[in-house]
Simulated scan of single mutants.
Amino acid sequence: MTVPDIHSLVPHSGAMSLLGSFVSADEENLTAEVRIGPDTMFLAKGVVGAWVGVEYMAQAVAAHAGYVATQRGEPVRVGFLLGTRRYACAVPAFALGSVLTIHVHRALQGDNGLGAFDCCIQEVSEDGSVKELATATITVFQPDNVEEFLQRSSE
């Protein structure tokens, strides 16, 4: 399997494309990495606030949708983060130099474009142990036609 560029799977661009690299994926799961470096978006005083973990998870869900679409020969489409349930984070922030692994698993997917993903953020320490830093269920919506959906939503 050719490893895709994570940025080709997510319809974000520039500084708002927060994921660093693609690790693995299949029809139900995706794993991506984020390296917290000096140029990382939202870095302040050497840390990224734990609240950004929700966006890391949401972008990994978007990358999963992009991965599944490209496997089917379809274009990457825009989706919407509807919300999160039970976001729990064991740390107040992600430290400069951290390598975060974001795992998403599709828990359900409706024919109407609604979906829910169980997500977690982990960090592998220098001794090889894995620490779970954050968990949540992310709820998303991907309409068949984004322009039509947005037009209807603004009326």
Rank of each mutant, 00 (worst) to 15 (best):
S17A: 12
V124L: 12
G20Y: 04
N112W: 11
H7Y: 07
V76K: 04
I36A: 09
L43W: 09
A93W: 06
C89P: 03
G49M: 12
R35Y: 10
A136L: 02
A136W: 02
I121Q: 02
M1V: 12
K45A: 11
V124Y: 10
A93S: 14
V54N: 04
V54M: 12
F42K: 00
S17Q: 06
E27T: 07
E132P: 12
G37P: 10
E155L: 15
Q59F: 02
K131V: 14
V78H: 10
V130L: 15
F94A: 13
L108G: 09
C119K: 00
T70H: 06
Q151C: 09
A95R: 12
V104Y: 00
C119M: 01
A95P: 08
A32Y: 02
V78S: 06
V61K: 00
Q71Y: 07
R35L: 13
L133F: 05
L100P: 03
G14V: 05
P75C: 07
G53V: 11
E155G: 15
F94T: 11
S153L: 14
R72V: 05
V104R: 00
A116I: 03
A69V: 01
C89L: 09
A95I: 08
F42E: 01
I121D: 03
T84M: 08
V52H: 08
R85D: 15
E148V: 15
E147P: 06
V91Q: 11
H103Q: 11
R85M: 10
S154E: 09
A50I: 08
I138P: 00
V140Q: 11
A44H: 14
T139L: 11
G115I: 01
Y87W: 07
V61S: 00
R86K: 14
M57F: 02
S8R: 12
G79D: 01
P38F: 15
Q59T: 03
V10C: 06
Y56S: 00
G79I: 02
L108V: 12
D144N: 11
A95K: 09
G14M: 06
L114K: 14
V104F: 02
M41K: 14
E132V: 15
L96S: 07
N145D: 12
N112K: 14
V47K: 12
H64P: 03
A136P: 01
S129A: 14
R72P: 04
L114P: 10
E55M: 02
A60Y: 01
H64F: 04
G14K: 05
A93D: 11
D111T: 14
T2V: 13
L19T: 01
H12V: 09
L30S: 00
V52P: 07
K131D: 12
A90K: 11
V130I: 15
G83P: 03
E55Y: 02
L96I: 05
V68T: 00
E148L: 13
V48C: 06
G37F: 14
L100H: 04
L81S: 04
Q142V: 12
E126Q: 13
T135N: 07
L150S: 05
A116E: 04
T31I: 10
V78C: 08
L9W: 04
D118E: 10
V47C: 13
V10Y: 06
R106S: 08
C119P: 00
L82M: 13
V140D: 05
Y56D: 00
A93N: 06
E126K: 15
D111K: 13
L96D: 03
V140F: 13
L9D: 02
E55I: 03
P4R: 07
P75H: 06
C120R: 15
R106Q: 11
R106Y: 05
T31W: 06
Q109V: 11
G14N: 07
F22T: 01
